[in-house]
Design a protein around this nucleic acid. Sequence first.
DNA 1: AAATCGAACTGATCTAAATCAACTCGGGGT
DNA 2: ACCCCGAGTTGATTTAGATCAGTTCGATTT
Lengths: 248, 248
Amino acid sequence: MDTNSTTQHTPSQPTNLINCQTCRMSNLCLPLAIDAQELYKLDELIRHSNPLQPRETIFSSGTPFTSIYAVRSGSVKSFFIDPDNHEQITGFYLPGEIFGWDGIAEDQYQTTAIALETSSVCEIPYDKLEQLSDTLPEIKRHVMKLISREINSDQQFIALLAGFSAQQKLASLILSFSDRMARQKRSPTRLWLPMSRIEISNYLGLTIETVSRVFGRLHKNNILKVNKREVEILDKKRLENLTTTSGN
Amino acid sequence: MDTNSTTQHTPSQPTNLINCQTCRMSNLCLPLAIDAQELYKLDELIRHSNPLQPRETIFSSGTPFTSIYAVRSGSVKSFFIDPDNHEQITGFYLPGEIFGWDGIAEDQYQTTAIALETSSVCEIPYDKLEQLSDTLPEIKRHVMKLISREINSDQQFIALLAGFSAQQKLASLILSFSDRMARQKRSPTRLWLPMSRIEISNYLGLTIETVSRVFGRLHKNNILKVNKREVEILDKKRLENLTTTSGN
DNA sequence: AAATCGAACTGATCTAAATCAACTCGGGGT
DNA sequence: ACCCCGAGTTGATTTAGATCAGTTCGATTT
């Protein structure tokens, strides 16, 4: 609810009033070095869509790859559906973060992406981006860094899943959200989680009961204040200690 | 041992005799469409190193990013060392596969990569690759697909770690190796695993005992013939069934 | 050929997290 | 105001996999 109130746009607002120049998140998804002239060019190719409803699909697994997307407000999850119809969430994306890279390899998206709440996203047609990057080396280098960053965060997450306990996983997730809130210049201590317990447990490879119990324990120990999806970090130091092997 | 015997080069052989034109793996790491002229240009920038000894380091976490690498023969593992000095393997790379993309984002490698056995790798200086891709759009598009493929396989692996049992994980790993052997035109049923049980268990988020027991069970059920690092797939159908949720 | 050492296997026991089962809480809808 | 219904919590029990404790095997050294 309160996560997107400050960047909310009404459907009736003309889309051309929404642009990168005025976007609060552009410092995250765009190269800092880019000059005004170049920003204008980039802005021309980006489609700023109307707000998405909660659960609305941005792209589906198996459909042709056309664009990558940046979250402008709200939040997005991406996931596989494996053959036996089991959903596996592979990422949550917050304002300023970019998703959809998985479509490039096979010319079709390998995951499905949906809005977790009322959200708006910027669609960046990939062919246009390729053209633009031919003339603007800054853009090209930034794109490479963004993709590499996705690889890094996926691999960090692999390390988390393979080696960490339920408590370490959940503490890491909360701290990750906290950091990403800070980058958005929003409170890093008072968080509102846009996803359900089912989605958290799926993402972390746990059950809802375990997630609920770990939240309960962290609450009891005065590390977090947890009330449904509202989480307040009371003791960041101790929370960080919990993410290390020694810290428990 | 036998995994790299056919592509072994002696240290005394001049490196300029090793090139992409004659590489058995070039159809995997290079675009199929590339013409002879272009291949020649690409070949000029690639450094074909002398064979690496088992355990020899290719690059280390934290050192400046200069190049990406393709496995020519042998095999490579990449891994993090987290603050509490615990190693977490993030990938195994076989001939024709490319690694090192994680260095782009921060201009330094985030992982360490070492040879698992006597191996040779092709070093591709990233700045040269960028220059070349400016003039050869085919190369540029291929590079993007390769990176995207790394994202896809990382995300597939996330799904494996988060949702699968020990048996499903191990069955998936064996089948992955089998597929990758087939791509190399090598036997997809008689495998020699280049990594130890410790490395397998670390990668899959299990213990060595569990890996050993699951191998034992698959052996007893006549699905695999397992003897240390030699694995023969006896019943591929049943092995595939084990990777689905329904299949057990 | 005996001694050493590391990798892998196997058995016994333990435990973190899964599973099964209520129960609470807070909206909507009628 | 009442009934639902889905989300989340909490408790009891079970279990897959971890941990602890040897044992086996083969390669290397002496």
